[in-house]
Structure formats: C-alpha cells, structure tokens
Design a protein around this nucleic acid. Structure first.
Lengths: 250, 250
DNA sequence: GAGTGGTCTAGACCACACC
DNA sequence: GTGTGGTCTAGACCACTCA
C-alpha cells in the first residue's frame, strides 16, 4: 500500500486545449516552487496518481518525466519519485545580457555605436557558414546599467535575415528582436575567456589599459540549422560575471 | 504515401538487455554523426518506422524524442522529423578540466599543493550548506598540461563524504573520484568571471602580476540534494577558455 | 485532402530496492 | 515478498502543414 505522503489538490480540465500531461506538470512544478511539495518528499506512485486524476499511467509519466528533465524531480526505481533538495533555478539558457540585467533589477541601456553592411572578414564568414566575401550586417553596441558601461557587443548577421533599426536595438535585446521576427533559436556554440583590455576598450568601458575583461564569442543557430548570429563581446570583469545552473546529463 | 527518403539498416535485438528505444536511438545517433543521415533529411514517419522495425509507435517516439532532447533532431508537425543542420556536439556538461584537457589531446598533470581538514570559513560553509564551523576538507591543486601550469584549483568538501588520497587526485580528476565512490552528480550552480592575478597567483602560474585570469566558482549537488563540493578556481586566460554548446529551451 | 507529429488510453511484464 | 519505476504494446483521435 502506498502512503500517499502528500495530499495535493491536483486536477485536470479535459475541456482545456492544454495537454493533460502539461496541466499536471504545471501544477506539480508550482507545488514544488511554493514549497507545498517539500524537498525530499515522495510523490506517491504513478499508478495511484493516475487513478486519482483519472489519467492513464503513460500520461502521468510524461508529466513527471518533463519535471525530471528539468531537474526538479528524481526517480529511483524501487523507491519512488522525490522532489530534489537543492533549489534548482533554471538550467543554463541562451543568456541575453539584456535579460540578465533586467532580471537583476538593473536598467539596461544600449547605445548603437555603429551599424553597417559590408563584406564579412574571413573569420566571421567561417563562423556564420557563409561565403568568404558575403555581405553581413555588423552592429556594435555599448551596453550600460545605471549609467555605467558594462560591455561592448559586436554582432554579425547575414543580410536580409532581420531588420535592425537602431531604435529597436536600443529599446530591447537582439534575441528578443529575433524571436519577434519569427526566428526560432535552437542552439549556440560559445566560448568564454578573459584577456587584458586594449587602449580603445579601456577608453570605451572606463577601465584601465590592461584591466581584465571577460570575453564571449558565440554562434547561434536557428531550428533550420542556419547560423543566424555571430557575436564577439567583451565585459568589464569588475562589473559582470556569468552565473548559471546546469544539470548533469543522466 | 511516404517517400522513405533514407534507407538505413536499422534493426533491434530483442534478446539484448538494452532497451529497444535506446538501441534505436543509438543507431540513429550514429547514423547522424557519421553523415549517413544527412543534415536536413527527413527521418520517415514514425508509423512506418515502427512497422519496419516491428516496434510500437510509442517506442519509436521515445527513441526519437531522446534525440530531439539532445538537439540532434527537430520535429515539425505536419512535416516530419528532420536532422538538424548545425553540428551539435554535446550540450553543456558539468565540465571537468581534467576531462577537457584529455579530450583536447593534452596530457593533464596534477600536483596536490595541500590537503587538510579544518573548520569552514563562513563563505564556504554557506555555499556547502553546512554549519558555520563545520569541518571540511580543503584541497588545493595545480593543474598543468605539457609542463605548463594551467590552473589553480581549490576545492572544499564535507568531511566523510569521500577519501581523497593525494595519489588518486594526481592520477585523475575529482569528479571521476566522486562518481567512482558512488556519488551521483545532479546539478551545479556556477559563476564564471575574470580578474587580475595576485602576486602569489602570478608566481604559481607563471604569469605577470595583474595578468587576466579566468575564474570559476561552483557548487555541485548530488541527486539527494546535498552539496558535495565547492570549488574556486583560477585559470590562465592565455592558456584556457571554456567552450561549450547549449540548447535553447523549447 | 493527405500526411505528419501530438496526445492519450488500458493494459502488460520486467528490474531493482527495501524489508 | 512487496512496491516502485522502466519498458513496451496496439490501438485511437486530434491539430497542424502543405499541396
């Protein structure tokens, strides 16, 4: 007999267009986040849960499985399904400096330093997977928060992919513009390092020459496999660092 | 009628203890990696694939779904399942410097500079979630490749979790020791930044004072939610950077 | 309209953990 | 031995895409 350790008010609405497994996953996730489902507590077995909700077991498993993938639950054969103890925030996402700053309660501001179309340098063309002398749009932006410069961001995009009016770029982030244009971001390959600031960078960012800068290069692909953006950014190490959570592959 | 765009030699062995969906996923993944399934090609519909292999559709879906989660395939309703164009290597894993260097063909060498048990500083205790004056093991290592120093790594672990003989630490990586001890790593929260080298760091790593260093702090949790390790590492920016691929959450 | 993936059901047997 | 998750089946209907 199962002990049904927690009595949650779970229910599904079969008239809703939202998939049943998704409704259940949503409610479980909320119960975990609000603490109604305590860390370490057992969820009760899948069969009983399915019976209680009038669902089939595969549907319940699909809901639970999605939360296991998110790292919120852990399944143990012969034991049961438990809520993870550690506070999993969110696994690493395609971080957007704009959104990061917003989330941190800072007010991001952007100044477009230049925006031009021209032939791609060899390294950029290779990263984007376009012909060596193909035309690309190059945008250089200075991102600040609280009137303090944070980063210089250089982006290259294939021409014709997206309109990039300066006022839109100064009002929001590049990824938001892409998503709004119907581009589905799929994956990115990125590299994070550090180096000393050049004279020009020091001047622009208000650091000393030789000050440590955090660097990131990133190629982003959409779901058709097209490279949609190549970025090469430098951040003031004194003002910014990347923080993220990641899950170990099972 | 479906066009069956690719003729793959797929088969499953029902006498094997390996799950059928996993066998299929493995073969599809291999076909993608070797190029037999070309980027952009359609996989053929799930029903037919199931019939061809003598499997049920849910089993085939489970195999395909696992590759979609890995970012190797993209499903489009009404269209089919396609191989992604971009070469997805592996999503971000819990990177181990030891394994990174091995994979890069370098020969990692480790020197244990110190290893001691003592009361945890407040910041360390907070990160590990142990009592403020609890005992922790602190290990300091110098990691090199090709006789060139790469990083200084400082790790704190709860006492009693794991035996850490110096010779084992010099022969392999910390995470490998943990896994071998039956610890299942689950998630990690980490932060990557940069700063200038102190005199001691410069001396140890063979850099100039003030040279840019890449820093990483990381707390790692096991599947029971216990913090099993807190690390604070510095890398020579001139010799190392983090490269990884990530998937956009769907 | 034809073809695809998305969702869902009601069972079944197995492998593993724990008592 | 008992209870759990892990795997698998053979269907079904729906929603979306594209011609």
């Amino acid at each position: 007999m199962s002990t049904t350790p927690v009595h949650l008010a779970l229910s599904v609405d079969r008239t809703s267009p939202v998939p049943l497994y998704f409704q259940l996953a949503l409610q479980l996730e909320q119960a975990i986040e609000t603490g109604r489902l305590e860390p370490g507590s057992l969820l009760g077995n899948e069969i009983e849960l399915a019976a209680r909700l009038g669902l089939s077991r595969p549907t319940v498993r699909q809901a639970i499985g999605s939360l296991v993938d998110k790292g919120l639950l852990v399944r143990r054969r012969g034991v049961g399904t438990q809520v993870v103890h550690s506070q999993v925030k969110r696994p690493l996402e395609l971080t957007s400096l704009y959104d990061d700053l917003l989330a941190a309660g800072q007010q991001p501001a952007t100044r477009v330093l230049s925006s031009a179309t021209g032939t791609a340098p060899a390294a950029v063309a290779a990263a984007l997977g376009v012909a060596p002398q193909a035309e690309v749009v190059t945008v250089v932006r200075l991102r600040s928060a609280h009137a303090e410069p944070i980063a210089r961001m250089v982006n290259h995009l294939p021409v014709g992919l997206l309109d990039l009016p300066a006022d839109a770029l100064e009002a929001t982030g590049l990824y938001r513009l892409m998503r709004a244009a119907g581009i589905t971001l799929h994956s990115a390959r990125q590299s994070v390092g550090a180096r000393a600031a050049t004279a020009a960078e020091a001047e622009l960012l208000g650091e000393a020459v030789g000050a440590p800068l955090l660097t990131m290069e990133r190629v982003t692909f959409d779901d058709r496999g097209r490279a949609v953006e190549y970025g090469s950014h430098v951040y003031r190490a004194s003002r910014y660092s990347f923080a993220f959570q990641l899950l170990v592959r099972p």
